[in-house]
């Protein structure tokens, strides 16, 4: 994790991206959700994706671990094309086993937590290490307690999800993803379903992860988080990336009028940039 932080510093160079989306197209029926979207994420980088609802942010994120099928384009993971791609003019579809192996290296945190309700917190965290990575239970437990420590929930190991607050559930979901030792973490509006007073505890965990050098792609409406934590902010609207850049540039001197309009509407509603952004 330490050298990951160092790589983050040099990520401006042309090191191989860990995740790369190349000219992605995606539609749901007649609705075009992603139109020719390209994005690359370097190791150790924190990329925040902002934009109005319906912009395609979540869909793009979900394409990265193949929860959504893309219609056209190529997704690269660690430099290799994955899931479904053209090779020598022919369409190649990866076998399930390869897709699963790649997903196992990509952590995901959902808006609605999606914890396994029939398993304890510990059960949720060790489930995939034991059954996907085939780790011995003792080892998986040990590691689970470490990641539960990271999210501050060691004492809840034996609790069931329904006994926890939303913020605690989301931290368990983060621990569940971390237990797989992922190379990238995807956050899909991880705080949008939370009561306002519970947002902070989840963001704190995410900030800590970023500090430790975790590669993160974060779809969020939390502008303060994006401003403070992101190495790069990506603004999406209408299925396309309108503009991207370091937060200090994008938030203070956006080039596109569309970006300006969005930031204006968000910051105005909050009564100024100093206020924390509420959940929309």
């Amino acid at each position: 994790m330490n050298d990951a932080a160092e790589v983050a510093v040099v990520s401006g160079s042309d090191a191989q991206p860990i995740v790369q989306l190349e000219r992605i197209w995606k539609s749901f029926g007649r609705l075009e959700v992603l139109t020719d979207v390209s994005l690359s994420v370097q190791k150790g980088e924190v990329v925040c994706i902002i934009g109005p609802s319906g912009a395609g942010k979540s869909t793009m994120l979900r394409c990265i671990n193949h929860l959504e099928n893309i219609d056209d384009g190529t997704i690269h993971f660690e430099g290799k094309p994955v899931y479904r791609y053209k090779q020598n003019g022919r369409v190649v579809v990866d076998p399930d086993s390869r897709i699963e192996a790649i997903r196992a290296q990509i952590g995901m945190v959902f808006q609605s937590f999606n914890l396994f309700p029939h398993l304890t917190v510990l059960g949720n965290v060790i489930e995939a290490p034991v059954h996907v990575l085939r780790e011995p239970i003792a080892k998986a437990r040990e590691r689970a307690m470490v990641v539960l420590g990271k999210v501050g929930l060691v004492e809840k190991a034996q609790a069931y999800p329904h006994q926890l607050s939303g913020g605690q559930q989301q931290r368990v979901a983060i621990a569940r993803a971390l237990a797989m030792n992922p190379k990238v973490m995807l956050f899909d509006e991880a705080t949008s379903a939370l009561d306002p007073e519970l947002v902070g505890e989840v963001l704190r965990v995410m900030r800590q992860l970023a500090r430790e050098g975790m590669t993160m792609v974060v779809v969020t409406h939390e502008m303060d988080f994006a401003r403070d934590v992101a190495d790069r902010v990506v603004f999406m609207a209408d299925g396309a990336i309108v503009e991207q850049g370091p937060p200090e540039v994008l938030f203070t001197a956006p080039r596109s009028p569309r970006t300006r309009q969005f930031l204006h509407s968000i910051l105005n509603r909050n009564g100024g940039p100093e206020e924390p952004s509420p959940v929309p």
Binding site: N65, H66, L67, D96, S97, E100, A101, I102, R103, A104, Q105, I106, G107, M108, F110, S112, N114, L115, F116, E127, A128, H131, V132, A173, R176, A177, M180
Partner: peptide, 19 residues
């Protein structure tokens, strides 16, 4: 969301169904 959560940690469909 339960299927998606299982898929996101690399579980196969059969494993998700069973576990």
């Amino acid at each position: 969301g339960q299927w998606e959560a299982g898929a996101s940690v690399g579980m196969s469909r059969r494993l998700m169904l069973r576990r």
